[in-house]
Design a protein around this nucleic acid. Structure first.
Length: 668
RNA sequence: GCCGCCUUAGCUCAGUCGGUAGAGCGUCUCACUCGUAAUGAGAAGGUCAACGGUUCGAUUCCGUUAGGCGGCUCCA
């Protein structure tokens, strides 16, 4: 009798004897167990156990369990598609974050009505309770069986040509052996449908508790622009109906917070068509928020020893020849303006035009400031800071609100220091960055360390080694989760990026801190060291917000438009009960204004309830309401954004309360 | 850039199977003067994204362009 080790959910091992031929399924009665981890690998519950196996249950609610559920649901989708559209060819169908997709080659793209029909078909398949059955096949057999599936054939071909590592992510052929999963009818056991797949799968389609098709979109086969476009259907699947509902509610919440929507509702910014795609204008209210964001950032940079510089938006191409941008980045740049060309009478070129470019990056200009005169080691670290506006010609399809624009302002700093100074500098820099982000209201971070891409880099092994280690040590000192991103660095140096989680748990890449070996060399940057020798400084690129526009969008979504008082465009709205209270409110408003508070008095002829509603919809932090009672007592009544109220507050106390909340950058 | 969808009043959206349009909110005017999320009445507001084609006639059908949305690719 085989003896196996059974691990329970808590990881406690228990030795057990089972009859020969027993499967993992026989160990569990709990229907929420969908697959098992056997010897560390996820396997079907139908897997026959061998002597010495260590078996661990995987619940549908776990990350692995959900992935398997979603993968199986993708199979159900593919089956539904081929039943409704027999000519559809299968691409790939993996689980992804919060769901799954499956790619198909079909003559016409799917419509929303098609999705509804497919969803119905899928429900039938789920109800039918088809069994997922694993079958090992040889390459040759698979080719015969899947002769009508050109994309699957391609994957089989790839597998025989490539190492397993290369295809580890491909659900279809990523396993050690080639397998096909058959969907078998619950009663007759007849083959209903099959797909090339490494598995594992849930035992039957009936174990899909809740799913929904989300949308269809096109996607390149195997992710390359050179390949044909397939039609991709996205779906989601969950362990319970409630979990699905919760996920849909989350998506709705995200939509409600969408900065493009809030930007229009709160009159913060717009993208006038006349200006061009991806180029924003900030309206007065958005301008106030932006000014406060920038103002506070300047204060902190000043305290932290940065020096402020300014550079033009436009430059001759020569600068980007030196920096190398024209070689490797010209596609991302606006095409040049050609100036001062001269032509002869017959049109022949007598003097070549001078090419000017909009700047896509600030660093080359900062380098010119560094080398404008000889530099001494005494000046280092030299920290140059600028709100530098850059223009990048993003492809039309990638532009997205303020988060992906064609013109945006970086809070860009370049720090020039000696190799010896680098550890301290990076350490204090990271602390500075995180502290500042916390002041803006983000407090849940993790760090990502991107290391060298072995096929694409400049600089010596020692440089990389040292810089990477220094970054790692600085990161580890922050007591935050550190995620490695091997090979993710730019060619010129390793980087740390700060990822922030917002109020509803989404992560955004915020600051990046990047060591650069390339530009100091290209610009031949030097300083004179204590012994009189010329040395090359290390350069650190650092953007904290990334771009102000993008950070603006992140904060807008994080706060769902309800900015903390210090950032709120209108901090207080004065609401009179009747016209007779307007003058009194204006007096209070004058006091608050002289205390630096942004207040408006709503003297429109709306009713007071309507004024409250308006202020509420504009997410104004404080409403000061005044009626006869307040006026008689020389007081005001607070209504806060959360709906709570505090009545009969003396004017002095009211002014102090608001002033303090602003000065402390209080949340809520 | 690629694929699909979309563009009607300031905003959100109806509508016209080809005969030049409608609501709510907002704006303006008037009345109302009210204690914590919508007072009532009236008015103004549209080359139906732009251009071209088909047609007696195009907001509607076709094409091109611009912009937006969802993906793919990209994000130095």
């Amino acid at each position: 009798m085989p003896s196996i080790h059974v691990l329970n959910a808590e990881g406690v091992s228990e030795e057990r004897e089972v009859p020969p031929g027993s499967t993992a399924a026989e160990l569990y009665t709990d229907r929420s167990i969908v697959v098992a981890r056997i010897g560390g690998e996820l396997r079907d519950l139908a897997t026959v156990l061998n002597d010495g196996d260590v078996v661990e249950p995987v619940s549908i609610e776990s990350a692995d369990g959900r992935a398997v559920l979603r993968h199986s649901t993708a199979h159900v989708l593919a089956q539904a598609v081929q039943q409704l559209y027999p000519e559809a060819k299968l691409g790939i169908g993996p689980p992804i974050r919060d769901g799954f997709y499956y790619d198909f080659d079909v003559a016409t793209p799917f419509t929303p009505e098609d999705l509804a029909a497919l969803e119905k078909k899928m429900q039938d398949i789920v109800k039918a309770g088809q069994r997922f059955s694993r079958r090992v096949v040889s390459d040759e057999d698979a080719r015969v069986e899947l002769a009508h599936e050109p994309f699957k054939l391609e994957l089989i071909g790839l597998k025989s040509g490539a190492s397993d590592d290369d295809l580890a992510d491909v659900m279809e052929v990523g396993g050690a052996e080639l397998t096909i999963y058959d969907n078998l009818d619950a009663k007759s056991g007849d083959l209903v449908w099959r797909d090339l797949c490494r598995g594992p799968h849930i035992p039957t389609t009936r174990m899909i508790p809740a799913f929904k098709l989300m949308r269809s979109a096109a996607a390149y086969w195997r992710g390359s622009e050179k390949n044909p476009m397939l039609q991709r259907i996205y779906g989601t699947a969950w362990e319970t109906r409630d979990a699905l509902k919760e996920h849909l509610a989350f998506l709705e919440e995200a939509e409600r917070r969408d900065h493009r929507r809030l930007g229009a509702e709160l009159d913060l910014f717009s993208f006038p068509e006349e200006i061009g795609s991806g180029l924003a204008v900030f309206h007065p209210k958005g301008g106030v928020i932006r000014r406060e964001m920038e103002h506070y950032s300047r204060l902190r940079h000043d305290e932290a020893g940065y020096e402020f510089v300014n550079t033009p938006h436009l430059t001759k191409g020569q600068l980007y020849e030196i920096s190398g941008h024209l070689d490797w980045y010209s596609e991302g740049m606006y095409p040049p303006m050609e100036l001062d060309a001269e032509y002869g009478a017959d049109g022949e070129l007598r003097k070549a035009p001078q090419k000017y470019y909009m700047k896509p990056m600030n660093c080359p200009m900062h380098n010119l400031i560094f080398r404008a005169r000889g530099r001494s080691y005494r000046e280092l670290p030299l920290r140059l800071f600028e709100f530098g506006t850059v223009y990048r010609y993003e492809k039309s399809g990638v532009i997205q609100g303020l988060t992906r624009a064609r013109g945006f302002t970086q809070d860009d700093a370049h720090i020039y220091c000696t190799v010896e100074q680098m550890p301290d500098e990076l350490d204090s820099l990271l602390t500075f960055v995180l502290d500042l982000l916390r002041d803006y209201g983000l407090d849940d971070f993790y760090l990502e360390l991107s290391t060298r891409n072995e096929t694409k880099f400049v600089g010596t092994d020692e440089d990389w080694e040292e810089a990477t280690e220094t970054l790692r040590r600085a990161a580890e000192r922050q007591d935050l989760e550190l995620v490695l991103d091997p090979g993710g660095a730019a060619f010129y140096g390793p980087k740390i990026s700060v990822q922030a989680r917002d109020a509803i748990g989404r992560t955004w890449q915020m600051s990046t801190i990047q060591v650069d070996f390339n530009l100091p060399q290209r610009f031949e940057l030097e300083y004179t060291s204590g012994d009189g020798s010329r040395q090359r400084p290390v350069m650190i690129h650092r953007a904290l917000f990334g771009s102000i526009e993008r950070f603006f969008a992140v904060l807008l979504e994080h706060y769902a438009g309800a900015f903390p008082v210090w950032l709120a465009p209108v901090q207080v709205v004065g609401i009179p009960i009747t016209d007779g209270h307007v003058d009194y409110l204006h007096e209070i408003a004058a006091k608050l204004r002289s205390a630096g508070v942004r207040i408006e008095v709503d003297s429109s002829d709306d009713r007071m309830q309507k004024k409250i509603r308006n202020a509420q919809k504009q997410k104004v932090p404080y409403m000061l309401i005044v009626g006869d009672e307040d006026m008689a007592a020389g007081a005001v009544s607070f209504r806060y954004r959360d709906g709570s109220q505090k009545n009969g507050v003396s004017i002095e106390d009211a002014v102090n309360e608001i002033r303090e909340a602003i000065a402390n950058r209080a949340q809520a």
